[in-house]
Design a binder for these strands. Structure first.
Length: 518
DNA sequence: CGAGAGCCAT
């Protein structure tokens, strides 16, 4: 039967591109005696899988007849590469739309941030299924509309694991890992993606401890981690600054065979940096054959964090001679290098060169970084000028940087202003009151000190004591500033003195560095 | 035999 024969051809053709051999699919397609609409659709899908969207369009144009699946394949292909305008045009043109066509467009609008448009289309869909609901929910999550996501999730008739995972991500992005965990525990048969979502959520919220715990629980249940799991576990190690855990995870990376994945290497660079071993950061970097922009950015940021301004700069030069285009984050790393080295003037140069030579539009983070550098450098007036002139509203972080600098470099007028802004933005922020009263105290304005303290009592604002802690032999030791209550305080002070001396002696750390690096 | 969803690095 000739029909049966075409079906076999189609399966083989699809099998080839699914295994990354699109050219073989193409060859076979050319040899086929009779092609049906499914054969053509398979070729469109193959092109899209191989990132050859314009070739997909050629097949779409050339095919003798199209069915709804052909139009849908083309639409979702365009959506995948952010060409939503074109997808929308096809959607309007197509003769019959089904739930898949609508869902693909909802996804498309959400992807480009047209979340209202996505919702409007979602609302007028003739029928919806679980995928439509899931797309809409994760669209809200991606666009930071967490309340809308939660609302829709609650209304969703048949919640499945994919929607629940999207919602877990939503809760975590909002910082509500507790809510996420409750949902996670409700999933009957957790799969890899749902484990990954929860581990990532913990890792990105600074709950490294929980992330590691969940990861080992996952391993105990016989679930194999993939590269995405390992990246999140590395992030968790970074947030804990635990070199021990970091090395253990690195071993797991090697065992799992993901060590050549560039995203894994990039995560290793950052992990080793944040765990204190810049040498291992560089080793991880040097292991990458063709570092991408993320690798370079991570390496520059690592040097910056460890105070190696010159090395950060040299990396940038090397990056450019390797013809990797810097992006906004590259300059953020360079600015951070300036900040750690106290290079105020240089930071302004980098900022200007970013805009003028590299045509990169500065984002709020760039301004925040600049304000921080100028503030720390004592140029509080100039920092304030930048805040006034930048095209964004300053957030608490920016005002906080200025406020802190006003304390160090004693500027009562700007300090008052910054504190006022912070209290406006976050009425419960006790830090602003405390720093302001310290500024008044430093200026000898004792009346004002009393006034601010009274204000704090009135507003019911309590000072949150900032403490740090460390874990030794499964016992957690807490420390407050000026805290002498630890039973071994004398030994601690002795050790600190020793470290201080060592830090002074380590001034020639550059030498140590070149002796060790490869 | 063909079309839509969740998790990942700076």
């Amino acid at each position: 039967m000739p029909h049966r024969d075409t079906v076999s051809w189609n399966s083989i053709i699809t099998g080839y591109w699914k295994n990354g051999c699109f050219d073989e699919s193409k060859r076979l397609f050319g040899l086929m005696p009779t092609k049906n609409v499914v054969s053509w659709n398979s070729m469109i899908a193959g092109c899209i899988e191989d990132e050859r969207i314009d070739e997909a369009w050629q097949y779409f144009q050339a095919m003798p007849q199209r069915n709804t699946a052909s139009w849908n394949a083309m639409i979702s292909g365009l959506v995948r590469y952010d060409r939503v305008e074109e997808a929308s045009r096809l959607f309007e043109e197509m003769p019959r739309r089904n739930v898949i066509s609508y869902t693909a467009m909802v996804d498309g609008y959400a992807k480009i941030g047209e979340i209202e448009q996505a919702r409007a289309l979602f609302n007028c869909m003739p029928q919806k299924n679980v995928v439509s609901w899931t797309v809409m929910i994760s669209g809200y999550v991606e666009n930071g509309k967490f309340d809308e996501a939660e609302n829709l999730f609650e209304q969703m008739p048949d919640k499945n694991i994919v929607a629940m995972t999207a919602m877990i991500t939503g809760y975590c992005k909002e910082g509500k890992t507790d809510k996420a965990k409750i949902l996670f525990d409700q999933i009957p048969c957790r799969d890899l993606a749902s484990w990954n979502a929860m581990i990532t959520g913990y890792a990105q919220n600074g709950s490294g401890e929980e992330a590691l715990k969940l990861h080992s629980q996952m391993l105990k249940m016989g679930m194999q981690p993939d590269h995405s799991t390992l990246i999140s576990v590395l992030t968790a190690c970074s947030s804990l600054a635990s070199l021990q855990e970091g090395r253990k995870t690195h071993v797991l990376v090697l065992k799992s065979g993901y060590e050549s994945r560039i995203s894994i290497c990039n995560a290793l660079i950052t992990m080793y940096c944040k765990c204190g071993s810049i040498l291992d950061s560089e080793l991880a970097f040097r292991q990458i054959d063709h570092p991408d922009v993320v690798s370079w950015n991570a390496m520059i940021a690592a040097f910056a964090r460890h105070g190696f301004y010159d090395r950060a700069l040299a990396s940038f030069g090397e990056m450019r001679s390797n013809r990797v285009e810097p992006d906004g984050i590259t300059f953020l790393s360079l600015l951070s290098a300036c900040g750690h080295a106290g290079k105020v003037h240089e930071s302004l140069n980098w900022f200007n060169s970013m805009i003028e030579s590299y045509k990169i539009v500065p984002r709020p983070e760039h301004f925040a970084c600049l304000v921080d550098i100028l503030s720390r450098g004592g140029q509080v007036e100039k920092a304030y000028k930048i805040i006034q002139e930048m095209p964004f509203e300053a957030d608490c972080g920016i005002w906080g940087a200025l406020l802190a600098a006003c304390h160090v470099h004693l500027n009562v007028k700007l300090g008052e202003l910054a504190a006022k802004k912070i209290v406006e933005l976050e009425p419960q922020n006790s830090g602003a009151y405390v720093v302001l009263s310290n500024i008044y105290a430093a200026a000898g304005m004792w009346g004002e000190v009393t006034r601010v303290r009274g204000l704090m009592r009135e507003q019911g604002v309590k000072k949150q004591p900032a403490y740090s802690w460390m874990e030794i032999d499964n016992k957690v030791h807490f420390f407050l500033g000026d805290d002498a209550s630890h039973p071994e305080i004398h030994r601690i002070r002795l050790e600190l003195k020793g470290m201080k001396l060592q830090m002074i002696a380590d001034d020639d750390i550059e030498e140590v560095f070149s002796a060790c690096s490869c």
